[in-house]
C-alpha cells in the first residue's frame, strides 16, 4: 500500500478526484436475486435506468442494453417500475 498522506498534503476537505479513487466493484453485496430481462418486450422507456439507485442499467447511446452486475444490488426497483413487465427478478 502507498504511503498515507500527511494532513498538509491532503486535498482540502479530503475531496476525492476520480483519478485517485479506486473503482471498487460492489455487486458482491447483492443478496439473493438479480434482474433478468426479455429484450423483446422492452419499449426502451428507460425508467429502469432513471430509477436504478446504483446506475447499474447499461445503455448504448440512448438504447437499453442490460444490467451491470458488478454494481447491481438486486433491489428490484427496475422490475417494479418496468411498465411492460420485461424485467423479472431471478435467483442468482
Amino acid at each position: 500500500m502507498a504511503e498515507l498522506s500527511t494532513w498538509e498534503s491532503l486535498p482540502i476537505a479530503g475531496a476525492v478526484r476520480p483519478s485517485g479513487a479506486p473503482r471498487t466493484k460492489t455487486g458482491g453485496w447483492r443478496t439473493g436475486e438479480k434482474p433478468a430481462v426479455d429484450v423483446s418486450l422492452c419499449v426502451n422507456c428507460l425508467l429502469c435506468w432513471l430509477y436504478c439507485p446504483d446506475s447499474a442499467v447499461t445503455l448504448s447511446g440512448e438504447t437499453f442494453t442490460g444490467f451491470d452486475l458488478e454494481y447491481c444490488k438486486g433491489c428490484g426497483i427496475c422490475a417494479d417500475v418496468c411498465p411492460v413487465a420485461a424485467i423479472e427478478m431471478v435467483p442468482e
Binding site: W7, E8, L10, A13, G14, A15, R17, P18
Partner: peptide
C-alpha cells in the same frame, strides 16, 4: 473537474482532515 466531497474518513484519515 468532478470531485467527491464529504467522503467517509476512516481512522487512517479522519485525524489528518481534522488537523487540516
Amino acid at each position: 473537474r468532478p470531485t467527491t466531497q464529504g467522503p467517509f474518513a476512516m481512522p487512517d484519515y479522519y485525524f489528518e482532515l481534522r488537523r487540516q
